[in-house]
Design a protein around this nucleic acid. Structure first.
Lengths: 116, 116
DNA sequence: TTGACAATTGAACAGTTGTTCAATTATAAT
DNA sequence: ATTATAATTGAACAACTGTTCAATTGTCAA
């Protein structure tokens, strides 16, 4: 079932077996780390931060972050796939806005952490 | 001062200039994204999750996660440098424990997010 | 329809990341 | 002292990531 990779025996089997049932399922685990992976990039944090203030189009975000439209668009796609932002076409422009109320809360908690 | 890299003009200068002063400092920005980068790995999430239940030594963590001691030790170092865990030597073993009460809160918020 | 602009896309590139492997340090037991 | 065990370390490797560049799509104005 589970292919072995560990190279040692347990030292406190009781602790290991007490903790084991509390561990998250693989599925949940990947979702969690994928979420943090998306947040773990300076450009994407800036984009989320900006969109928390106002919905904005790609060109304006590029000017604000001093990056190319292409680079911004690539990162917005990552945020879109992660369902953290949503896009709305208005004429020639595409306006992005936050799509998830949890993001603000998590950013605030993380801010408390790094600021202490 | 700021070297230009953007390839376009602002479309809504008013919005850009309204949002600009709300943007975080570079310094804070990097701390934030570095923090999320540390959380953005399945192995490290598992380690934090386990240590939330009980302090554990490297060998037991290796058995629990079914990984080599070396791989676990490398990741514990990342968590140690990020000050999320602390190490205490007891005889032949090194016991790790959580070092930051914010981590649990952030994990819980993130969990709410991915579970909705 | 033509030209200009906004945004997206895919390939390519360098830089980074996580695990493995082998060697090493440090402690405890004989 | 010697041996065994726990943990750390650094180099090497493949896999992944973010930006750039060039080409493309789609929309508006003339």
């Amino acid at each position: 079932m589970e292919n072995k990779r560990t190279d040692c025996e347990a030292i406190n089997i009781d602790i290991v077996e007490k903790v084991r049932p509390k561990m998250p399922e693989m599925n949940l685990l990947y979702e969690l780390s994928d979420f943090f992976k998306v947040m773990g990039d300076g450009t994407r944090i800036q984009l989320l931060w900006a969109l928390e203030e106002s919905e904005m189009c790609v060109g304006d975000l590029a000017v604000l972050l001093n990056m190319t439209k292409s680079a911004v668009s690539h990162q917005l796609k990552v945020l879109r796939v992660a369902k953290l932002v949503r896009a709305e076409k208005k004429g020639k422009n595409v306006y992005y806005s936050l799509n998830d109320h949890h993001v603000k809360l998590i950013l605030e908690k993380a801010l408390e952490h790094v600021c202490e």
